[in-house]
Design a protein around this nucleic acid. Structure first.
Lengths: 113, 113
DNA sequence: AATAATACATAAGAAAATAATGTATATTTG
DNA sequence: CAAATATACATTATTTTCTTATGTATTATT
């Protein structure tokens, strides 16, 4: 089972920031694989969604990049800036709170039914 | 604090379906107020988002409508169809699973850090 | 040698919400 | 009782964001 893409909407930026916070630095392809791995293939981030997101994070000053060459192939590593780190905390706690709020909605029938 | 709107994206349809499942029938304005109430004003559904969603649910055969007149003012009540009821169960359990998956991502540092 | 995996990227189009606007009735408040 | 607010529907232009498709190139596997 793969989650319907609409569910992933709005959480992609938070997922990426959180992974960067936990792993110091990561490159794009690595992020797609990591997400697949830790979600048991239930969330698959497409390149068309990921790269524009990473570029936006960089434009916003939340991450900085660093190129690495593996033979002739390039890897672009992304690393949180101090601003990025505090933004990550904000986004993560907002998402946690949001999920708690959603739980209230999803379980509201326990009180009213 | 109001949740950033991007978080609500993708969950709106599920929220509406779940409220209808718990309340038998509801009208649009009532839904916006109920969501405000049970989330302590943290989620506010705008009309521009809600009405198109309700119309889409109707077009998909998940809800049926029923007009009520309060004096000269009209209320359009929405009610789940049998298809709508089973769809609601699907969407709710998908969202619960998604949130569990997100928890794994958000807490992954407990294992790796 | 051919295929699959790794690794970046962009671009056209679709989907879905926002913000704004519109109409109208009913209720509350100064 | 007039004005403001709340109730209640709806649409539309714009923006945002993702999907799907495409493109290039290297490296590893079969």
């Amino acid at each position: 089972m793969i989650f319907s893409s609409e569910l992933i909407k709005g959480t992609l930026k938070t997922i990426v920031l959180k992974l960067l916070a936990d792993n110091k630095k990561m490159y794009g392809y690595e992020i797609t694989q990591k997400v697949k791995e830790i979600t048991g293939d239930k969330i698959q981030i497409t390149e068309g969604a990921l790269y524009p997101t990473l570029h936006a994070l960089e434009a916003d000053g939340l991450v900085i990049t660093e190129l690495e060459y593996i033979g002739k192939r390039v890897r672009k590593h992304y690393k949180l800036t101090p601003t990025g780190k505090s933004k990550t905390k904000e986004k993560v706690s907002e998402l946690v709170e949001f999920m708690n709020t959603m739980k209230v909605i999803l379980d509201i029938n326990l009180q009213t039914a």
